[in-house]
Simulated assay, not measured.
Amino acid sequence: MKTEVFYLLICLGVVTALTRKQEALEQNRRKVALPTLQKKQPPTREVLKEYEDEEELSDQCPEPNGYFPDAEQCDKYYDCRDGRPIEKLCPDGLVFNDFSPQHEKCDLPFGIDCTKRPKLQKPQPSPHCPRMHGYFAHEDPRICNTFYYCVEGKFNMITCPEGLVFSEKTGICNWPDEAQKKGCGSRELFNFTCPKVDESVAATHPRYPDTEDCQYFYVCVNGEIPRRSGCKLGQAFDERTGKCDWARKIPECKDWYKGQLTDEELDALENPPPKPKPSGGHGRRKGAKPPA
């Protein structure tokens, strides 16, 4: 009987021992397999969004702090603080000037390169102002010397000095040949063409009178490009000298200002009163010592 019990205990022990060994092997197998299963597990939506946000921040904020232009829109920029961008827009008609990340500056578009980011916000037009801010040409393309200066959608009409036209490229008045505004060239405006001359004369930029206005004349730059210029009030262009002089001294222009200025006014222009000497002091020479 004892022998049978002994054999039974041995058998039970063997079974128990084998079961524990298998358990240990199974646990080890699971430990090895767990990292593999974790690697194969797809990322959650939260993880993916975090990666997308980080990629977006790196595009909009090249540096953690500063002001940076949008890649596509010239009047949009980003105010970056600790790598987080705040999207901003310039006032309508102005664009972001990206000359320095340390400065937040919106400017008129003249002189700012927007070729790589040509998009702009939707215009907010008003009478004579295609956008709220800026310099804009007259609606009639035949009117070359008048333009509008718009601020907050309100306009001021400005006329260029005689002989100049508004340049849409620079936003200022310029010579017709430099403004290059269609229909506003020297030939269309003045009905004047520079006479053909040899190279030596052309190099002197010859001058020619305006046959319809004694006060004005044309300068032919390099003998080819006409630019209309003028003499000051009371004077006229003297073709013989190529200079301005008092109109009453030039036979063909002596009566030019009749009906515009009286003889007394012309006398005052030709003979201005001497400038008064500065008051005070005793006229000592500079650096002279005062009397002891």
Rank of each mutant, 00 (worst) to 15 (best):
E50P: 03
E50F: 08
E50S: 13
Y51I: 14
E52R: 12
E52C: 11
E54D: 15
E54H: 14
E55C: 12
E55I: 12
E55W: 13
E56K: 05
S58F: 11
S58R: 14
S58V: 06
D59W: 09
Q60L: 11
Q60Y: 05
P62S: 02
E63C: 02
E63L: 05
P64D: 06
P64F: 02
G66E: 03
G66W: 02
Y67M: 10
Y67N: 12
Y67D: 07
F68Y: 10
P69Y: 06
D70C: 05
A71P: 08
A71C: 10
E72F: 12
Q73V: 08
D75N: 09
D75Y: 06
K76M: 12
K76V: 07
K76T: 10
Y77C: 00
Y77M: 00
Y78Q: 06
C80S: 07
C80L: 07
C80N: 03
D82M: 08
G83Q: 03
R84G: 07
R84W: 11
R84T: 12
P85S: 10
P85G: 09
I86V: 13
I86F: 14
E87C: 05
K88P: 00
L89W: 13
C90N: 01
C90F: 03
P91C: 06
D92Y: 00
G93K: 00
G93A: 02
L94K: 03
L94N: 02
L94H: 04
V95I: 15
V95C: 12
V95W: 09
F96T: 00
F96L: 04
N97K: 07
N97Q: 06
D98S: 04
F99N: 13
F99L: 11
S100Y: 11
P101W: 01
P101T: 06
H103R: 15
E104V: 05
E104N: 14
E104C: 05
E104S: 10
C106M: 12
C106G: 10
D107H: 15
D107A: 15
D107T: 14
L108Y: 07
P109Q: 08
P109Y: 05
F110C: 10
F110M: 11
G111V: 02
D113E: 05
